[in-house]
């Protein structure tokens, strides 16, 4: 069923789900929603399964026209959403009428908003996922970002979604300073003590080269023992790669599956949504945690998701 016409796509609007797994061994990144917290909550708000295909809207500029009555929810970055020019509530579900124009005109905070639609956005699955990997033209809407005039389809609305609102205490605040928790490794032994200490004690700034593949940071240079080259190996989500120039790059969902530069640490899973909402100019510092602490954080995160679910459907 036709659900939206793209009036303006904005700088980068793509269809994403939770990503594709099993294909990294063939060089295919997972892709998927970069902020999976806002993405999952958006779907819960409209009565979808957590991983239903939605729109990831990067920075302001996107404008859509509803082609039928449909329930939606907006979560993630504050892009001053409006419906027919009137402010639209976010982090809650609401009904759009046929002909309504939904706009995301201005950036207030964060970087990426998610638009969930009851029944999910419908596109053919490629390698079992709806996610768009634009660099290789794989998945989503013809493998590419949305363009003016595109018509989006949704699956039939099976759930009778009622209006649901995210409890305000669970709505994240997107600041301009982010502390990212990291686990050292796999190549922390290829850095000097001074290098590790620079990494953990300095403030870095998100450069303009920051996208779904990775965020290049600017700041103090991290010292290697003997050089930045390694025998190429896999790259986990959130890995912090330090090439020869000593400046860290946080690698994200569209990262290459393998690489030949030293990786000093890996961002813990629960902090990926926070880097996802960072934008050029934001400040970042790194805090070391261990594996056990990271798993405790992850358990809390998933418990919170369960709590949200039970409160939405109470």
């Amino acid at each position: 069923m036709e659900v939206f016409e793209v009036i303006q796509p904005g700088p980068l609007t793509t269809i994403q789900d939770l990503g594709r797994s099993g294909y990294q061994q063939f060089g295919v990144p997972t892709s998927g929603a970069l902020d999976n917290y806002a993405f999952r909550v958006g779907n819960l708000l409209v009565g979808n399964a957590e991983g239903a295909a939605s729109l990831e809207i990067t920075l302001p500029g996107c404008q859509l026209r509803a082609l039928r009555e449909t329930m939606i929810a907006i979560a993630g970055a504050e892009l001053a959403a409006t419906i027919n020019g009137e402010p639209a509530s976010v982090w809650e579900s609401r009904l759009l009428k046929r002909g309504d124009v939904l706009s995301f005109p201005r950036l207030n905070s964060g970087c990426r908003a998610y638009l969930a639609v009851t029944g999910s956005i419908a596109v053919p699955l490629v390698m079992q996922s709806a996610s768009t990997y634009t660099r290789a033209g794989i998945g989503g809407f013809g493998g590419r970002p949305l363009r003016k005039g595109d018509i989006l389809q949704s699956n039939k609305n099976t759930a009778s979604a009622k209006v649901a609102r995210m409890p305000s205490e669970y709505i994240p605040v997107y600041g301009n300073r982010i502390a990212l928790r990291v686990i050292l490794g796999p190549q922390d032994d290829l850095f000097t003590e001074e290098g590790i200490s620079t990494f953990l004690s300095s403030e870095y700034i998100v450069s303009t080269q920051a996208d779904r593949m990775g965020y290049r940071l600017e700041g103090p240079r991290i010292q290697h023992r003997e050089g930045a080259d390694i025998i190429s190996d896999g790259i986990p989500l959130g890995a912090i790669q330090v090439p020869g120039d000593g400046l860290p790059i946080i690698l994200l969902v569209d990262r290459q599956t393998t690489g030949g530069y030293t990786k000093i640490a890996t961002t813990v899973s629960v902090d990926i949504p926070r880097i996802a909402q960072a934008k050029p100019g934001d400040k970042i510092n790194f805090q070391q945690v261990d594996e056990e602490q990271a798993v405790t954080l992850l358990k809390k995160y998933e418990q919170q998701m369960e709590t949200i679910k039970s409160r939405l459907y109470a």
Binding site: I183, G185, P186, Q187, T266, S269, E291
Partner: peptide, 8 residues
Amino acid sequence: FLSGGDRA
């Protein structure tokens, strides 16, 4: 065994 974070 080398750390790849909490999921790898």
